[in-house]
Design a protein around this nucleic acid. Structure first.
Lengths: 130, 130
DNA sequence: CTGCATCCGGGAGGATACTG
DNA sequence: CAGTATCCTCCCGGATGCAG
């Protein structure tokens, strides 16, 4: 787990991991780490989707956070935002190729979650019982 | 990307995704989403490690957050904490089988990051240039 | 319908000093 | 060495109102 391609200059930190802010893992983590981002990407797996549809599928998200998340993902090139010049306004969000390449990870995450959630829950119960 | 096993009761939200707080993806997200957690798990990939060693490899982490992260991961059954009764104190942290099963994801994350970070950076630059 | 602007409270998390 | 305790700041994110 070395940030081999982004190690700092100093030889003293050769063994450091995730040490550099510029470490790509760190940057991606800031994105994947964002709960809403992952949920948006996951939701868009099924295809293009409108703003309201996303809001409905991601229960609990405020308009503010949804917009903010969508903007960030758009800026990162993970999805496209298409405004249709009609009334009422219609805006479609769709994953880019880059965004879809993330689906593998997101899916892996979901799979791990469904597979191991029980073990985690048991471990927590055991820990709390001490 | 349905939380198929954890859908809410109401039929009205049948199409919702990540809607339920109890959704396992959501829970795992709270863990994976945590930057420090991922870095700790990634660092421990190489084998057992002491507190200070972890602190050194994860540059920028405060003692507070490192301890907090380690406790949470221990509680979740992702790593073990072994205290050796010696002076000076020696505490080893080691991934459990469950923790190691997460390495696949963490590695996938790192791989995606290293592979696509340039595309993301370019996309950001293009977006900002508009 | 699809947002943006604004306000605001709470909690995450950094810095620092100290202890068994 | 391996943490704990304390303080304090910042910003995440919810609520609300409004605009195009």
């Amino acid at each position: 787990m070395k940030c081999s391609t982004h190690l700092r200059d100093s030889v003293l930190v050769e063994t450091s991991v995730y040490a550099d802010k510029g470490c790509p893992s760190r940057k991606v983590l800031d994105r994947i780490g964002d709960t809403w981002s992952v949920m948006v990407v996951g939701s868009l797996a099924d295809g293009p989707m409108r703003y309201t549809e996303l809001a409905r599928r991601i229960s609990g998200v405020s308009p503010k956070m949804l917009t903010q998340t969508l903007r960030t993902l758009e800026r990162d090139g993970l999805l496209t935002r298409t405004v249709h010049a009609v009334v009422p306004p219609r805006v479609d969000y769709e994953l880019t190729g880059l965004g879809r390449s993330l689906l593998t990870l997101v899916d892996g995450l979901r799979l791990w979650a469904e597979t191991h959630i029980d073990e985690v829950t048991e471990a927590q119960a055991a820990y709390d019982a001490r």
